[in-house]
Nucleic acid binder design. Structure first.
Length: 813
RNA sequence: GCGGAUGUGGUGAAAUUGGUAUACACGCCAGACUUAGGAUCUGGUGCUUUACGGCGUGGAGGUUCGAGUCCUCUCAUCCGCACCA
């Protein structure tokens, strides 16, 4: 029978389904592996990136199952989000209907790939049962003070009609639609991720060597911890009067307290309350007021690209140590959202302050020794710094912070670039934030027994405004506390909230899904995820949120896990003609068509063979043919096998070619554990199997063939499961698949050893010597073989690398 | 600007601790079988040279008996951060 993928793939997919072959055991005492590929958004169709993601994950899952582990390998759907609403606007389909029908279609597509998923643990994050538990977490977090509602300046995407978290703004644009993000003042719900900033940063150490270092660095930079001094500038009496007594002082933060004697001005953000007050009360010249307002309305991105610009505000502050009066400016380079929106400016030792001072001819005072020119941002001994003069920067930092603390006018503090996670979205297709606004009780969480707060289905989705806000009845309810007429919150949760805890939901035995969100015992057994696989694009967003959520839920008592993802593999993109596959470029390959033409095994083999998983993968149709040919060839060699068990082979009777074939087979076997546990270089494991097959082809021994196929099918089953299982069933009754195979070291013992002979560092010839040969024997054989190149030369050094080579260093005689 | 990664045949890529550079595959060339081949099989395939040989892992140095691998400098590409005081 020739290789017929569609037939055997359907056959085995059906058998696996019937056997429930991939359900993990309920026993929580066995050794376990939790293998997780990031779940997909149900966009409608699978793309090659998905196929790659799941082919990699499936190889791990099948490998560890074979090694006797209890394996959890689940799949589900990241089902809330904008595209469902966009489809509603465009095609008039209800987001729910659109989402669930997409899921049905994509589930079938995944099915044809023969992936070894647990079926009983599948869910969609838009399932009301999932929402129910998520809302419970949110309420618990609110009660713990981890979730709060406040009105601040937010990132607003006009095209998505929603607020975005800081992490979802890429180069000033919306991560989804690339529209320029605007700043807008509005209320929203925030998760206090900064409370966990230190732990999120410190625990990155636990992930070293297990996560790509690039991801660790990115997270660390994103958190952006910096230590320094926070103190208050007191306004001069005149300035206080000018500000109508509304302001006494304001706070600034510096990482360079050692430069404090070099302060020559202070700068406020355009949106700082004092700047605003001055504008609003007509205390600035009209022209200046306009400019300040203009800056306040610019996005952070626009400001970053603009030249330094600022205006004197006509007020001054008192230097806390010298008592000098210092002018206050507003400046476009001061961020409103960091360090209180105000800075002390030390132009001699800060590049930005220097540039600004130069432009506006503000004084520049050097207080640190070092560097030829100003600004000098390095460290050194202090000068002109009162009693701290002559002290070194690092000491001075501590001493000056102490001084502020003793006098009660400032303190050492830590700041983070990380902002709290804004989770409000003004959209319909998300999990409702389970709160009620009561005229007398204020913000009240829904009663736990009333969860989930489910979405109304009868909505009109136009793209204009928030459909929940516009729904005629849904938002009117009774206050859960006092029973009075109240209004439901119409914001929904960021979809990244759902993907922050799904790893715990899979781990929870589905029998308990109605009763708990996360089962502690199950979670503690299965987590952390032993191998997590997904795209690098989630390096910050999802991976940071999920780490935070894990720690927050731990502290709420849901489990005892510190880090959700023990090992992370970030897969490269799938490219075609050097560019990312996309519909707009017309360079996509449809997984369905590929599977139909060649079968799932070929698709999987090609994807794992063409490049190591971390790298980008360039699609190549003829290389796909090559993968198909390999499986066909393997299939064809079925006839060479004699016997249905692993034969014991007497090495001495074998031909040289047969011996070499055994070496190749066992080399492949040896490689496999390294690949799955260390390098992830599936491409080299597949190449080793191809070499083994090529070597088997060059010899005739039936028992070597039998042994070779027995082992190779075991190695290939995680990669091409249908063909490998079909052959294994026919040849070995599948006995070779479950077995842990051992490397037979005696295979590697050769009758003769090949030495490369190098003379003067160049490879000249080869010799074969007896394995027991002495160093002298080897050297004299090498000299004999290399006599031609030794003529007229004196050997000055002799190197013998055992079992490898001889190098004779020479010089002219 | 700062930080990180990567540079190996025509292409995708291999190469334990420094030890035969280019495994495996694609492509290409030649041949076989065929009515035919875009099927299959066999052989060849880094560059250069008639040959002996020489040269070859982005470039230039260095360490070493020996460097794709280690060190210094440099170029290119990609990615991340980008006024965070």
């Amino acid at each position: 029978m020739s290789y017929n993928p569609s037939e055997i793939e359907a056959k085995w997919q059906k058998i696996w389904e019937e056997e429930q072959a991939f359900e993990p055991s309920d026993s929580l005492t066995q050794k376990k592996k939790y293998i997780l590929s990031m779940f997909p958004f149900p966009s409608g169709r699978l793309h090659m990136g998905h196929v790659r993601n799941y082919a990699i994950g499936d190889a791990f899952a099948r490998y560890y199952r074979k090694q006797g582990f209890n394996v959890l390998h689940p799949i589900g759907w990241d089902a809330f989000g904008m595209p469902a609403e966009n489809a509603a606007i465009k095609h008039g389909r209800h987001p729910k209907e659109w989402t669930y029908s997409n899921i049905d279609y994509m589930r079938k597509e995944l099915g044809t790939l023969g992936l070894s998923f647990s079926k009983t643990r599948e869910f969609a994050t838009c399932d009301e049962l999932y929402t129910k538990w998520e809302q419970e977490f949110i309420i618990r977090m609110f009660k713990e003070g981890l979730l709060y509602r406040e009105s601040t300046t937010v990132n607003w995407c006009e095209s998505c009609h929603t607020v975005l978290a800081n992490e979802q703004v890429e180069e000033g644009c919306c991560w989804r639609c690339d529209n320029e993000v605007q700043l807008k003042e509005m209320p929203g719900y925030y998760l206090d991720i900064i409370k966990y900033a230190d732990e999120l940063l410190e625990d990155l150490k636990l992930l070293e060597g297990k996560w790509p270092s690039q991801v660790i660095t990115m997270q660390s930079n994103w958190i952006g911890r910096s230590q320094g001094l926070e103190f208050e500038f007191e306004l001069s009496d005149e300035s206080k009067a000018k500000l109508g007594g509304k302001f006494e002082k304001y706070t600034v933060f510096t990482t360079r307290p050692d430069t404090i004697y070099g302060v020559t001005y202070s700068a406020l953000a355009a949106e700082h309350p004092i700047s605003k007050y001055l504008v609003e009360h007509g205390l600035l010249e009209d022209e200046v007021a306009q400019k300040v307002t203009h800056i306040a309305n610019m996005t952070e991105r626009e400001r970053a690209q603009a030249d330094k610009e600022g205006y004197p505000l006509g007020i001054s502050v008192i230097h806390p140590l010298t008592g000098e009066e210092i002018p206050v400016w507003t400046a476009n380079f001061v961020l409103g959202s960091y360090g209180g929106g105000a800075v002390m400016a030390v132009p001699a030792h800060d590049e930005r302050d220097f540039e600004f001072a130069s432009k506006y001819h503000l004084p520049i005072k050097r207080v640190i020794e070092g560097g030829d020119t100003l600004p000098y941002t390095g460290t050194g001994n202090l000068i002109d710094s009162s009693r701290f003069s002559c002290v070194d920067s690092s000491e001075a930092k501590i001493a000056i912070i102490n001084e502020f603390e003793e006098r009660g006018i400032g303190k050492g503090t830590t700041n983070y670039k990380l902002r709290n996670w804004g989770v409000s979205r003004q959209r319909y297709w998300g999990a409702p934030i389970p709160f009620v606004h009561c005229p007398s009780c204020g913000l009240v969480p829904e009663k736990i027994e009333n969860l989930p707060v489910a979405l109304p289905e009868d909505v009109e989705i136009t793209g204009e405004g928030n459909p929940l806000e516009n729904h005629p009845t849904w938002k009117y309810c009774a206050c859960p506390k006092c029973g009075a007429d109240a209004v439901r919150e119409t914001d929904t949760l960021d979809t990244f909230v759902q993907s922050s805890w799904y790893q715990f939901r899979y781990a929870t035995n589905p029998k308990k899904w109605n009763d708990v969100g996360i089962d502690k015992e199950d979670a503690n057994y299965w987590l952390g995820v032993d191998q997590y696989i997904g795209g690098i694009e989630h390096a910050i967003l999802h991976l940071l949120y999920a780490r935070f959520f894990t720690k927050a839920l731990r502290d709420l008592g849901y489990h005892d896990i510190d880090e959700p993802f023990t090992n992370l593999l970030t897969q490269g993109m799938v490219l075609m003609n050097g560019a990312k596959m996309s519909k707009s470029k017309g360079n996509t390959v449809d997984p369905d068509a590929l599977v139909e033409k060649y079968g799932a095994d070929t698709a999987r083999l090609f994807i794992l063979f063409a490049a190591p998983p971390q790298k980008e993968l360039e699609w190549n149709d003829s290389a796909v043919e090559g993968a198909f040919r390999f499986i066909k060839k393997l299939y064809d060699r079925k006839a060479k096998v004699a016997g249905d068990t692993l034969p014991g082979i007497d090495q001495s009777g074998l031909s040289k070619a047969s011996k070499l074939a055994r070496v190749k087979v066992y080399e492949a076997l040896q490689k496999s554990s390294d690949v799955y546990e260390k390098t992830f270089a599936f491409n080299t494991l597949i190449a080793a199997c191809m070499e083994a097959l090529n070597a088997l082809d060059k010899q005739e021994s039936a028992e070597v063939w039998t042994e070779g196929m027995y082992i190779m099918l075991n190695l290939l089953e995680p990669i091409i499961p249908h063909a490998a299982t079909e052959l294994s069933e026919a040849l070995f009754k599948r006995e070779n698949l479950g077995a842990i195979l051992e490397v037979k070291e005696e295979v590697f013992v050769q009758d003769t050893v090949l030495y490369v002979v190098m003379i003067g560092g160049k490879k000249r010839t080869e010799i074969e010597v007896d394995p027991g040969a002495s160093q002298d024997d080897i050297l004299s054989a090498a000299k004999e073989a290399g006599a031609k190149w030794l003529e007229g030369m004196t050997v000055v050094k002799e190197i013998v690398v055992p079992n490898k080579l001889v190098n004779l260093a020479v010089k002219p005689a």
